[in-house]
Design a binder for these strands. Structure first.
Lengths: 197, 197
DNA sequence: GTCTATACCTGGATAGAC
DNA sequence: GTCTATCCAGGTATAGAC
């Protein structure tokens, strides 16, 4: 049990550091320091750095799935659920301003490294994509639900990238408002959205 | 003169490597190998890695300015010029699919590293932003020209990020079409666009 | 202006005592 | 399960011969 607790502390510290500094720029020593653990002991829990990365991605997937479930529980209407997604940009604006989107920046870094965990990381996007697609289907957009989901994902990624590049979080409010308005227009144009879950 | 030629070859090789592998992941040895130069000789041209980064950013700025001038020369109508910007996503789709946008990914990496050249790098975005803003002003959108410029930039960044994460360039065609349609709608809603340059 | 050689450091990873 | 000590590869940077 104690073993699991230490392992979890390592993964959480790595999650934070990978987000704030990037995967490659984070050393074993950095993570070990963050959880006040010796470098040697570290290898008792994780053999390689790649193993830590996979554990971090798994943690993020679990957290993401829980968040999506929470949103679905908090709102029944598909448009309101999609708005929950858009709102994460605002809720996390302080972090995004500094480090961008955790998913987008990780995927970008792994792509350049040619890292084998690329597919695992983009699976994080897939969680959001599939969830959004389902809500667009419920909105009555069966035919283009996936394209709409990707559109929302892309817009949010662009917002995060520019907010970080310009260190400007007022821009986040501006653009999320535009994205919300786009969604309103979409809903208004739908004659009779299906409301069954 | 020979000195300048070697220097330029170094900067061009670094430009390519920083894009494809990232700044931190690219070593002096990588760049030296690419231009078949000894490591020692390398320092005759650049004292530090940061100096190379600044030279690469300066090169990109010059190339960007030349490209923007070219677009302005090739089309007079503001909407057509803005479409030239949107088209780079399609023209460079093979690269974007693999490595994302050179500007967005560099800014993202430098932000996480807390690198002093962050402002220099985001200046690349500013070149596009100011150029687009001017074209939106010419379209008659003085009041929100900057917001529109940032909107176009954000959309294109999102497209690049997701195309890279999913290694999907069909998505680029899909989303750029949507962005072009948005621009068409904007132009159509303008009663009398100013056409003086 | 170009090379070789090398100093110095950091980071990933292992061995083995406690 | 935790620690210290250590190895080795690779990266930045310098010195100095040619």
């Amino acid at each position: 049990m104690k073993e699991n607790a230490t392992r979890e502390r390592i993964v959480q510290a790595a999650d934070k550091l990978f987000y704030e500094r990037g995967y490659e720029a984070t050393s074993f020593a950095d993570i070990a320091d963050a959880v006040t653990l010796s470098r040697g002991n570290f290898y008792h829990h994780f053999k390689t750095k790649d193993a830590i990365l996979l554990a971090v991605i798994a943690l993020r997937k679990a957290n993401t799935a829980a968040m999506l479930d929470h949103w679905a529980g908090a709102a029944h209407e598909p448009a309101e659920r999609i708005r929950s997604f858009i709102r994460i940009l605002i809720v996390n604006r302080a972090q995004i301003r500094l480090y961008g989107c955790p998913v987008g920046t990780l995927c970008g870094e792994l792509a350049k490294l040619g890292h084998p965990a690329q597919a695992e990381a983009s699976g994080l996007f897939t969680l959001f994509r599939d969830w959004l697609r389902r809500e667009f289907v419920r909105l009555g957009r069966e035919s283009d639900a996936d394209a709409l989901a990707m559109h929302v994902l892309a817009r949010s990624q662009g917002i995060a990238t520019l907010a970080s590049a310009f260190h400007d979080d007022r821009f986040i409010d501006q653009e999320t408002a535009g994205l919300s308005a786009w969604l309103d227009g979409l809903v208004a144009s739908q004659p009779s959205p299906s409301t069954h879950s």
